[in-house]
């Protein structure tokens, strides 16, 4: 089924720098996706609950404050607790290589640093969601 991909885009934590989140939200919309934009200052609980209610395929978090090692794992834990284990958790911000590796090991998807192109992000979400939907259909 070629249904629209739904993505939740959120600014996690107290950080208000939303340039990246907005540029990405626009790019995802322009690529034909339905973007649920929750705006600023979202707690992990708010993000996970919204992801479940909206039945999104992916959650994209933008986070420039350095709190990524706290917030990503917490969102992941809550998504799993709420039965959203199949939802892709991805995102971007000022995240060093070492932290990216650690978060990926915990189950977070690809993370995009400064300089990533929106095309890379769109392609990644489309491919990864497609792969996961295929798995779901075959299970």
């Amino acid at each position: 089924m070629d249904r629209a991909i739904r993505v939740l885009v959120a600014k996690a934590g107290l950080d208000g720098h939303d340039r990246g989140a907005k540029v990405v939200a626009r790019a995802l919309r322009d690529a034909g996706m339905e973007v649920i934009y929750t705006g600023l200052r979202q707690s992990p609980e708010m993000i996970a609950e919204a992801a479940v209610q909206e039945d999104v395929d992916a959650v994209g978090l933008s986070l420039l404050s350095g709190a990524h090692m706290t917030i990503f794992p917490e969102v992941l834990r809550l998504l799993r607790e709420k039965g959203g284990d199949d939802i892709l958790l991805t995102g971007g911000g000022c995240i060093g290589d070492e932290d990216m590796v650690e978060l990926r090991e915990q189950g977070v998807g690809e993370l995009f640093g400064p300089g990533a192109s929106t095309r890379e992000i769109v392609d990644y979400i489309r491919d990864e969601v497609g792969r996961r939907r295929q798995l779901q259909e075959n299970s």
Binding site: R29, V35, I36, M46
Partner: peptide, 25 residues
């Protein structure tokens, strides 16, 4: 493009984690 930005949750943040509320965009 067939895409959309659904932004109504922004104004309903206080309800975001209330188990008695379900919001769907």
């Amino acid at each position: 493009t067939g895409g959309a930005v659904l932004g109504d949750r922004v104004r309903m943040n206080d309800l975001a984690t209330d188990p008695g509320v379900f919001i769907r965009s």
